[in-house]
Design a protein around this nucleic acid. Sequence first.
DNA 1: CCTCGCTAGTCGAAATTGTCATAGGGGGCA
DNA 2: TGCCCCCTATGACAATTTCGACTAGCGAGG
Lengths: 308, 308
Amino acid sequence: MTRMGRSKGRMSARPHRRRLPSTAALQVLLAIAERGSTSAAAESIALSQSAVSKQLLGLEELIGSPAFVRTPHGMVATEVGRIYIEHARTALKAMEDAALLAARLKPGPRVLRLQVPPIFGDRWLLPRFMSFSDEHPDIEVQFTTFISPQQSEMPDGIFQFCITPMADSESFYLFGNDVLLVSAPSYFERYGMPRTLDDLSGGVMLEHPQTPFHWQHFAAHHHRAELAMRHTTRFGYYTMVIRAALAGQGMALIPRELITDELASGRFINPGGFTYPSAYGYWFVTPPNARQSGSMNAFKAWLNGQMR
Amino acid sequence: MTRMGRSKGRMSARPHRRRLPSTAALQVLLAIAERGSTSAAAESIALSQSAVSKQLLGLEELIGSPAFVRTPHGMVATEVGRIYIEHARTALKAMEDAALLAARLKPGPRVLRLQVPPIFGDRWLLPRFMSFSDEHPDIEVQFTTFISPQQSEMPDGIFQFCITPMADSESFYLFGNDVLLVSAPSYFERYGMPRTLDDLSGGVMLEHPQTPFHWQHFAAHHHRAELAMRHTTRFGYYTMVIRAALAGQGMALIPRELITDELASGRFINPGGFTYPSAYGYWFVTPPNARQSGSMNAFKAWLNGQMR
DNA sequence: CCTCGCTAGTCGAAATTGTCATAGGGGGCA
DNA sequence: TGCCCCCTATGACAATTTCGACTAGCGAGG
C-alpha cells in the first residue's frame, strides 16, 4: 500500500515505497494457477471464493493487466500472469526458506520441513495430517511445494514422485504404482463404455507432461505400444488434469490412492477395470547424511501407521 | 494472515495458507537494516515512525524472535534478522523483476528500470526526481536497489559506483571523486580541531568495507600511506556510516555532493578542509547493446541537465 | 539537569480484507 | 428450451489490519 499520509496524491519522489503485490495476493495467484479456478483455489488456501476473486482482481489492477483469461474450462494464465506466477514462487519460497532457517536456529524439537507435491498434499497428506498434529502438538512441520534443481534449503524429508529414489538416501514406498484409467460418468456416456483398448483410443486423453502416467505407458503394459490416442490434451499442472477429468473432458491415468473419495462417490468411474502398474510411485525420502531427530522419527512412525 | 473462517483455532490440516510476512513488513525490514533506525527507515519508505515500529514488532511476533537488537547507536540485526533480511531481498527483488518484465510486454513508452545504490537514491536522485516526473508524466521509471552478480533482469540504466565502467558500455560520470573528511561538530569538540593528518589519525574512522572511501586512500593521497588510524569502526551499510558520522561517532570520507545539505546546515563540518580525489565515483551506465528508447533519451537529457 | 533522538504504546480513524448472499454467464443434458 | 451445475464477480456489511498523531519513557551527550 502506498500512501502519503492519508491524502491521495501523486507519489512524492523522495520517500519511496514501491507498490508490490501482497503476500496473500501471491499465494492466491499460485493457488489459482495450480488449481484452475477461484473456487478450487479457495479450498486449498482457506479463503472464501469471493475473497480469492477480490484478491485476484486487486492484483490485476495493481499489475495493470489480467493474470488469467477466464474460459469456460477454467482460468488460463496470460503471459503477464505466467511472469508473476513464476516470480511469486521465488518470492514465497524465499519467505519459507527464511522461516525454516530461522526455526532451525531455535532450541527444542527440531522443526521439520517437508517437501510435498501439490497433488499429493491436497489429496493425501493434508487430509490426514490433523492426526499427526494431534499426536505431536510440540512438533512444528513446515510444508513447501517448491522444488528447484539446486535446492537453496534442503528439506528434512521429501515426498518424492519417482521410480526409485537414489540409493544413498533412506526411503520407503508409499503408493502410486496402482494406476487407474478413469473419467467422469458423463464422459463415458458420450464416448461409450469401453471394452477394449481400441475403444479407449478413440477418445480423449488428459495428461501432464511431467507426471508420467501417460497413455503410452498404459498401452505398452497391455502389449499395444503401437496404439496411439486419437486426441491428447496436456495441462501445466497435474491438479488440472484431475480437475478436467472430473469435468468429463477426457480420461486420465491416476493412482488409486489419490482418488479414493471420488471413486467411492461415483464422480470417477473406471469402466472395464482398466489399470496398469506404473514404475513410478510416491516415496518418502530423507536425504543422505540427514541426522536423525526425534521429530523425524516421530513423523516416520506416524507415516508408517498411515500406510496400514 | 491465516484464518479459519472467523473462528480462532488451530489451523485445519486441510486448507492451508502459511503465515508469511507481508510485503510491507519485508520492505520495512530492509529499510531498517539499511538505515539503522525506525525513524530513518520511515523517511525512506513513506511511513510514520510508529507505523514502521509496529510493522517491525508484528514481523518479530510472526517470526517468533527479534530481528534487531535495540542499541543506543541503532538497530543491529540478529542472526534471525540477517536470515530474514537476506530472504526479504530475494522476495522483493522477484516482485520487482516481475513488474519489470510485465511492463516490458506493454506497448507504448518503454518503462525504465534503473538500478540505484541506496545512498545515492536517498541522498541525490530521489530528491531531484520529481522534476523528471513533472516533465515526463508518461514515462514510468522503476527503481531497484538490488544488485546480484548474475542479474536475473538487466536494468536499463545503472547508477554505478566504480572507478571506470566497462569500456563496452555507454556511460558518463556524475560525481564522487571530490571526497571530504567530515564529522559532526560534537566529534571535533571532543577530539580537537585537526590541523594535520597526525591529528586526524588519533581519532575514530567510520567505514563501509565495500564503499572504498577509506582512510588508507586518503592517507596515501597525502603521501602518508604508512599512517594508520588508531581506531576504525566498520558498518554493514554506507548509509549507516553517514548516520554514525552525523551522530558524532567518528569521521567519514564522503563525496561532497551526497552531503550538501548537511554541510550547509552545519550538521557536518570539514575542519582543516581535508579532502582527497577518489578514483571512485558515481557513473550513469547503460548496458552494452541496449537499444535506444525515447524514454532513456529523455532520462539522459534530464540527468545531464541536473549535472549543471 | 536539560536536550535530543530513539522505540514503543494508546487512541481514533482509515483502509483493507473477508464473508454472506446473490446476479449473471456458460456448458451440458433431458 | 429449460434446468442444473459450476463458475466469476459484485454489493453490503462486518471484522481486522494498518496508519498517524501524540506521547511516555529511555539513554547518551553536553
